[in-house]
Design a protein around this nucleic acid. Sequence first.
DNA 1: TATATAATTTAGGTATACCTAAAATAATTT
DNA 2: AAATTATTTTAGGTATACCTAAATTATATA
Lengths: 223, 223
Amino acid sequence: MLTQAAEDYLKSIYKLQEKGGKVSTGILAEYLDVKPASATGMIKKLKSMNLVSHERYQGVTLTDAGKAIALEIIRHHRLLELYLFKALGVPWDGVHEEAEKLEHVISEDVEARMDAFLGYPTADPHGSPIPDKNGVVPKTISIPMTELQNGQSCVVAEVNDNDSALLRHLGSFNLYPGTAFRVIEVAPFEGPFTIDIAGQQAVIGREVAKNIFVSNVQETDIV
Amino acid sequence: MLTQAAEDYLKSIYKLQEKGGKVSTGILAEYLDVKPASATGMIKKLKSMNLVSHERYQGVTLTDAGKAIALEIIRHHRLLELYLFKALGVPWDGVHEEAEKLEHVISEDVEARMDAFLGYPTADPHGSPIPDKNGVVPKTISIPMTELQNGQSCVVAEVNDNDSALLRHLGSFNLYPGTAFRVIEVAPFEGPFTIDIAGQQAVIGREVAKNIFVSNVQETDIV
DNA sequence: TATATAATTTAGGTATACCTAAAATAATTT
DNA sequence: AAATTATTTTAGGTATACCTAAATTATATA
């Protein structure tokens, strides 16, 4: 069994790898809120276990074995989030923190039972895909809300899950994955978005919109 | 926040204190499967936090603060066991091990939600009392099954929860808390018990019977 | 290209919680 | 009471995972 810290490193490397290019020691350290020297140490340890590849000053990459573990932890995390949300009614801005602790201790058996209870879901409460037991991640096609134009309608596909206050804010507008809305107006000069959600108007600032990803984008006639 | 190890020590001291008299370093170490020297170290640490009282060579006692924490952990554990059993269908011989890990990471919020889901229960799947939020332990009146006489009927109140194989064995006879049975015959010379459970006969050895505690004992006419 | 800046790694230190082996203390037996 | 045995504690060591500070290596600027 890996330590919790090692699991967190693998998970973080995976997420950073997904987001963008090279995962440097510094980026990884910042993401995990530790000092670069600590990241160097853990990278050496993970390398000795053949879970990551690493050349000095060149950044880290997950090996197949490391990626499999990372995906397993992410699966635990996202299934737990959805379970807490659906079965116990934990608000969506609280599930992340809770799952962060549980993901390291839940057994495969309990996970399978939650999976069955939830009907083998493919996305967590924030819209993030849940990898299956074999580490296959369901594909989701979505674009940042910031790319939307006047008059376009769409459905919320996914939102960033790492900011509780933001999630509460989005919740107050009902901006959950699955919710449809239409862009009434994008203010010029990178301004805020005025949108229509089920007949209600809402103004969404650009910084907030950056955290929202949408799908099913369609041109609509202005009513 | 206490470390997981410290919480386990407090919980163990509480349980050993319940069972019998003085909790010595050696007894505690054996119970936790660590060396006596390790127990000495942790006792010193807990004493410095005013969670236990300890005089060299005299055994440990929980302070009020230590007892409160011990009861909180035990509450977590037993609520989790019942939740896993009822909500997720985990077999009763598996819930202990699972709860052992979860009890240290579950939040008060999630615990309160499980408590409500379960209807504020007072006993776990093995019949052990669940302390309430204030640390009050529901009183249970029960006697060891080994004290039963021919012809007496009773209800299973509690069974020892620390042996999976035993629990599976009891489960195969339906000997769960709440199940009623009648003693048909106690074999002489400390022999096994022949009992009647819902019309089915079963033979329960003495070593097994020592792990079963019963209540509502009544004399019955032999039919 | 030389120098300044930034990123990374090494070296050495902290805290937790375990270990073994030896010393100290208590309890039991002769 | 003395000697043996058992228990407990001290002393010193291991592994994990973090830290700071200094040294190294790479990158950017003059």
